[in-house]
Design a binder for these strands. Structure first.
Lengths: 203, 203
DNA sequence: GTCTATAGGCAGATAGAC
DNA sequence: GTCTATCTGCCTATAGAC
């Protein structure tokens, strides 16, 4: 039952890995079945055996990505850390993606949104909703235990974080300088760690 | 010499207008010469007369967009307004674009970056650089006259604004709710209007 | 400037052999 | 599961008539 190293992933998994990278780098309209097949040394006909069409492949990519992201959030949840540290860990998830010269899958697909098959559209929105929900919970708890101070509602702050990090990835990538991203992320989170420092904001 | 209404724009201009909208909605790999030609009731061969290829059309789009944006910034500069009001006016430029169901041309092209012709890549970066430069100037002046308070350098704050607004457009569009964008923009700018309220941050 | 006609390539997709 | 062979359609682009 024990596997020593990574067991050779089956073809469907390898297809998903290659396709995911291509979409994150080039966009949904910027890659083809032929690109994926070439990298794997198989034919496009084989690709169609595993994923009936590009739309189905895209939906599989989204399901996998969202699931993986949710697991990463659960890992952060399990840590005995305060609000600010959890937000930093969250931002680090994005930095890791950018470090691989990629955009967030759903950030990229948000750009491609108008051209996406219907099924994919809903999955993109759901991804953002789940991130927002998780962040809202963290922000709410942080406000209650005093580790986070911010103005406005927790959900608005959560949305600001999601869009701020997505935008920082988008704009940073052409510069090829991850520091640019980290500085933006730090600035973004700092405003939620120290805003409203005075208990009674002077209306 | 006086034109009563809008003089019928020449073909090249109409091509640019249609192509710009298509790129902002669908991305550079999500539209074709055929799409543009169909909308204008001409053929793709005519399109090639005005713009030799998709790459040249793309560069013309970027030149036009950047120029238009620079003019908008000059208009804001000319206003006798304080820092915060100028930043709000800046954010409003983005809101106007999003209101047309579009992304910022360069935000979209940043997503397509890896697949862009070389000439277009440089223009995208230059667009961000100019926005950053303008914002840095506003932020610097605002800090000097006391109308803006923020932590860190002016250029870092400028980058945070650019990426924050680009990301807010990106994430908001699938929801079709411009309020979402405005709330994010307000939150983003608020952190620059009131941050570092205490003169001596407790380090 | 705009057209018709056409080239040559690549796209996503399918049938059927192995 | 993977292949060869093939289809249809769209893509960018060009030649040359009007």
């Amino acid at each position: 039952m024990l596997r020593t190293k990574r067991p050779a992933p089956d073809t469907a998994q390898r297809i998903l890995e290659v396709a995911e990278r291509l979409v994150q780098k080039r966009g949904f309209n910027g890659f083809s079945y032929a690109d994926v097949a070439r990298e794997l040394g198989i034919t496009t006909a084989s690709l169609h055996y595993h994923f009936a069409g590009k739309a189905q492949l895209g939906e599989a990519l989204l399901a996998r990505y969202s699931e993986r992201f949710s697991e990463a959030l659960s890992v952060i949840d399990a840590r005995p850390a305060a609000g600010p540290a959890k937000l930093e860990a969250y931002a680090e998830l994005y930095a890791d993606v950018l470090n691989g010269q990629r955009l967030c899958l759903c950030g990229m697909l948000a750009a491609d949104y108008e051209t996406l098959p219907k099924g994919m559209r809903q999955s993109v929105v759901t991804f953002f909703d789940e991130n927002e929900r998780w962040l809202t919970s963290i922000l709410q708890k942080g406000r209650e235990d005093g580790s986070l101070q911010y103005e406005g509602s927790a959900v608005d702050a959560a949305r600001l974080i999601v869009s701020g990090l997505e935008g920082a990835m988008l704009v940073t990538r052409p510069y090829g300088d991850i520091t640019r991203f980290r500085v933006a992320a730090r600035g973004l989170l700092a405003s939620l760690t120290r805003a409203g420092r005075s208990q009674a904001p002077a209306d």
